[in-house]
Design a protein around this nucleic acid. Structure first.
Length: 410
DNA sequence: TCTGGGGTCCTAGGACCC
DNA sequence: TCTGGGGTCCTAGGACCC
């Protein structure tokens, strides 16, 4: 049966949520940023800012240059999570075959077997109305409808913001011949460059290119590219719950100029390790693999991971794993980014209880710290970095107020 | 004043086991 | 004594997405 796939994509997501929440921001060019530092980038731009040429992932200094009078709003993840949950539950009322794609997008399988869909556009119209009714007038979405996920995603981008686009089977060829390669989800700049070198510069050409050659160049990916070039995509919409399980938890930070030495990077690594530990505990998870990533002065990223014999959720243990890795691979002279990622996750309550009394003590201490921090704000309490310490149980008597991070306190 | 921060998936090779 | 084939786990790195 011919499938009917929707791709629903929120418009200027974080920025719209902020405008909805704060009337003073409405109708104005704003961008939502990460942390409010000089090196921050645009996470989302309001439509007013987009008109001035501001785009996601642009450094904020550049955005301000393009758009004088731009308002920078620091992101508020809790707010977005609330909106996201409501958004998905609206969609879920149309089909249980819902696949979230990031926080502000989802695929929906509305193939008529489940719902009498004489006119998919009418359903799309209804979804759009419901989203604005329930979440607020400033929050809108665009919807793409096609026979598969690849085309539905392409379609939702064609009439943004607040638009509905259908790609019928008859239109597929003409749409693909007019679309740049990188508009397809799955083709980034690297693959585009390699395709260009092979003489392929449009989606239509990709679809006609011999599969054998594509396989020789790209391996397994080549076969997928061939299908993409033809507008084909057999992937099913994976129902919610199937892919919601988190696979890894990590934090990273670009270093300001004055922290770009191995010595100055270590306290940051320590702090990141504790952030990862906290996030694991909050989710009731523990990890057995720890990966340390470092970007050097030339912006090359290298990483090394180790798998421990047991699962951990304590920042100190994560940090000491990082130290072990660092001892093995060394550190670039000018680190520009450090990151810690924990994977091989298991739910904590499926693990055996700690045996040694000191471990149990440690667990209690962390629980107390976490609850204090939740009540009085992040980083009210945290461990002072003990550089070079590999002790799994450093003394914990010494607490310190935050203040050694960030250029403003430098 | 170039280039954030959170992720996922895939591949290929090596180690190790039976 | 040159030696299979399957399976799993681990690791490094690449590519991509929002």
């Amino acid at each position: 049966m011919k499938r009917v796939i929707f791709h629903v994509d929120m418009d200027s997501y974080f920025a719209s949520v902020e405008q909805q929440a704060n009337p003073k921001l409405r109708g104005k060019p704003i961008v939502v940023t990460g942390r409010p530092t000089i090196r921050s980038i645009v996470a989302a731009a309001s439509r007013e800012a987009k008109k001035a040429g501001v785009r996601s992932a642009m450094p904020t200094w550049k955005a301000e240059k393009l758009c004088p009078g731009l308002t920078l709003v620091p992101g508020d993840p809790d707010k977005y999570e609330w909106v996201t949950n409501n958004f998905f539950s609206i969609l879920r009322s149309y089909s249980s075959r819902l696949e979230p794609f990031g926080v502000d997008e989802a695929f929906l399988d509305l193939t008529p077997s489940e719902l009498d869909l004489s006119a998919p556009e009418r359903i799309a119209e209804e979804i759009r109305r419901l989203v604005s009714d329930r979440l607020g007038n400033w929050i809108t979405c665009s919807i793409g409808i096609a026979r598969n996920k690849l085309l539905a995603k392409l379609a939702s981008d064609m009439n943004k913001p607040d638009g509905i686009t259908v790609i019928d089977d008859e239109d597929v060829d003409s749409v693909l011949s007019n679309t740049p390669l990188t508009d397809l989800c799955g083709i980034g700049s690297r693959i585009e460059r390699r395709l260009n070198r092979m003489g392929v510069s449009s989606i239509a050409e990709l679809g006609e290119y011999p599969e054998k050659e594509l396989r020789r160049e790209f391996g397994v990916v080549g076969a997928k590219l061939k299908l993409m070039g033809q507008g084909k995509d057999p992937r099913p919409v994976l129902p919610a719950g199937y892919s919601e399980e988190v696979k890894s938890v990590g934090n990273s930070l670009s270093l300001p100029d004055y922290k770009r030495t191995p010595e100055r990077a270590m306290p940051i690594l320590f702090k990141l390790s504790h952030q990862v530990g906290y996030r694991l505990r909050k989710r009731g998870l523990a990890a057995s693999t720890i990966k340390l990533s470092v970007r050097d002065g030339e912006y090359n990223i290298t990483g090394k991971q180790i798998t421990l014999g047991r699962h951990v959720d304590d920042g100190n243990e994560i940090y000491s794993a990082c130290l072990r890795i660092k001892d093995k691979i060394g550190f670039p002279a000018t680190p520009t980014m450090v990151g810690v990622r924990a994977s091989n996750l298991r739910e904590r309550n499926t693990l055996s209880q700690p045996i040694l009394p000191k471990w149990r003590e440690r667990e209690k201490l962390l629980a107390v710290m976490d609850s204090v921090n939740e009540e009085y704000g992040k980083e009210t309490l945290y461990f002072a970095a003990q550089s070079g310490s590999e002790d799994l149980l450093p003394s914990v008597g010494e607490f310190r107020r935050p203040g050694d991070l960030g250029p403003s306190q430098g």
